[in-house]
Nucleic acid binder design. Structure first.
Lengths: 334, 334
DNA sequence: GCTATAAATGAAAGCGCTTACATCATACTA
DNA sequence: TAGTATGATGTAAGCGCTTTCATTTATAGC
């Protein structure tokens, strides 16, 4: 690999000059610039970005931490971020936190040690305080899917409470009065918020919620199946089920079908997230759209604007969920 | 951020010694080691990996290029790689190539300039020659889902031809004789191989394939729907359909249902890949398992063994696809 | 005790860049 | 024409590490 030194030699200039034409941040005469470019071309020169980072203390790369690399949710988010960054000539370094505190911290430290210019984090296990402290350092931080009042400007979040409310309201409007709720792990704020939205809608319609019809899963489809079994086993009738995410809804639907329940005739189901799979499931899932790709893009824009001086960009911190009507929920037929 | 120099000062040793205890690659007396560790602890020292990379010309990170960051397929693969790497203390830098030649090359060059120790590539648009040339340089390269004879050792691939064969054979064994085939884009080698496997199975059963019952899609679900419409529009009867991947199968199934066809009673469908969604679809999709997560892990192991000297690891280059029987294919009922 | 050998440590030269500062033409101003 | 901006380029000091080589110190043999 050619170095800047060889380029400067071939072009007959100093390395400072080569650096200048590379970075385009100081005047260089048309003539020398051309000589340098020709030399670069001839040598197939590619700047060593590690050396650039070390010298400039900037890396042109943004660090991203997600809980998992697989799964439809994170893929969409990563894709949104990467698209936006690449278009701006920035690169991404990705680590996974696996929803465990130690692992999340470890990932964050790795990204920092990698001299990222900013961090985009989707973290769940780490505490608010840790993040507040982190953000008070030199490393710019953006939080996705988490809202911390003291860091409001750095948070790109969804109004989960509203989402839970909308999901439930849809069912209520269709005349259902006996609803079950399948929650995510309640220690996660999004799971709790969605549940609170549910309760608000219920209250608004003057319905009291039967705690026996609440099941807590872990956002995976298998727990959706398990929870559904639990709920049915209780023998308390319900005509509608709101699930805290699509994957659990899919698991639940499978069990329902296995037990001879028709969806939506016997049981209406509403999900949350609007994953791709919501369209594949049969019947197609009515759900709440979570614009995670767009939110990823927005987090990237936050970085572009605040770190890379792209002033023109418009930012938006809180996204509104929207109901997507498909086939899994219908008005009560009995 | 503390530097190695501050640590050495606090511990009262030279920076060379600090470096030695960090890297654990030279003898340091128990006594000094403890002093250094204590100093590190006290300062909250984290080595700057950029500087480490520049000095050592090793980065402890492996570069990964995938076509897309979203989608169930790549997520699984990335996850497999990341898990294996992280367990070994290596990190991943990810770029997307978007199946376009320029973009793939650009991504590869970025990863190289980032001083990755090795590259794991899932590329489609770039030529064999380019890859052969790349691999002949200093940068170790592993190819996933692509087989190039000259680079056989560096390829982790699936026997796609066998997969196509197995999918078709399953249908043939169930008594179907009128089969349609929905291919992926034929310029991609995996699409072609799968199709060839289909032809082999047909030939083995003494059936000639009717070219009118071949449709070429692009591996997306929307093209699955479009192709299905085309096929049905021709009015040539067929009782079974083999799809070159699950997503197209999902699209096709939707159209079939819309046209009043019951799966599998009226039409048997077999997919390929065994994505998560294959389990969610109704009826559950019979398909060919593509162990992409496992293959990602294997690619990572290749790197660990060949680059990071973890000799003990066992490698495997070619994976065998396996039929997964579910509900979308059944013996002919008429 | 004194040398031969090995173990522990330090000094210093990079790795490939960026960037503050110095230098040298050239073009204006008065 | 001297004096001064101004633009173009070069010089050299780092950035925070690794690693070679030299030096010092401990260990052992006799």
């Amino acid at each position: 690999m050619a170095t800047i030194y060889q380029v400067s030699e071939l072009a007959g200039v100093s390395l400072a000059t080569v650096s200048r034409v590379m970075n385009n941040n100081a005047r260089v005469s048309e003539n020398t610039r051309n000589k340098v470019l020709a030399a670069m071309e001839q040598l197939g020169y590619r700047p060593n970005s590690i050396a650039q980072s070390l010298a400039s203390n900037r890396s042109n790369s943004v660090g991203i931490l997600v809980s998992e690399l697989h799964g439809p949710f994170y893929g969409e988010m990563l894709s949104g971020i990467e698209n936006e960054c690449r278009a701006a000539g920035k690169h991404v370094i990705i680590a996974a936190g696996h929803s465990e505190e130690a692992s999340e911290k470890d990932g964050i430290e790795f990204l920092i040690s990698r001299s990222c210019d900013a961090l985009i984090l989707h973290v769940e296990a780490v505490s608010d305080n840790y993040l507040i402290k982190l953000a008070s350092g030199n490393m710019p931080v953006v939080l996705i899917n988490r809202f911390i009042p003291q860091l409001a400007d750095n948070c790109i979040s969804l109004d989960n409470e509203l989402g839970g409310y909308l999901a439930t309201k849809e069912l209520l409007q269709q005349g259902h009065t006996q609803l079950a709720y399948m929650a995510g792990p309640m220690w996660k704020s999004d799971a709790k918020d969605r549940y609170n939205g549910h309760l608000r809608a219920m209250a608004e319609y003057g319905l009291s919620f039967n705690p026996a019809l609440l099941a807590e899963g872990d956002f995976q489809d298998s727990s959706g199946s398990a929870c559904m079994q639990q709920l049915l086993a209780k023998g308390i009738p319900f005509t509608a089920l709101v699930c805290a995410n699509d994957e659990m809804a899919a698991g639940a639907m499978e069990v329902a079908r296995a037990q001879g329940l028709n969806v939506p005739q016997d049981l209406s189901i509403v999900g949350f997230d609007n994953l791709i799979l919501a369209r594949y499931i049969y019947p197609k899932l009515t759900t709440i759209d979570y614009p995670i790709g767009e939110m990823g893009r927005m987090a990237a824009r936050w970085v572009l604007k605040n770190i890379y001086q792209q002033q023109a960009l418009q930012l938006k911190n809180v996204f509104q969920p929207v109901l997507v009507c498909r086939d899994s929920a219908s008005s009560i037929t009995s």
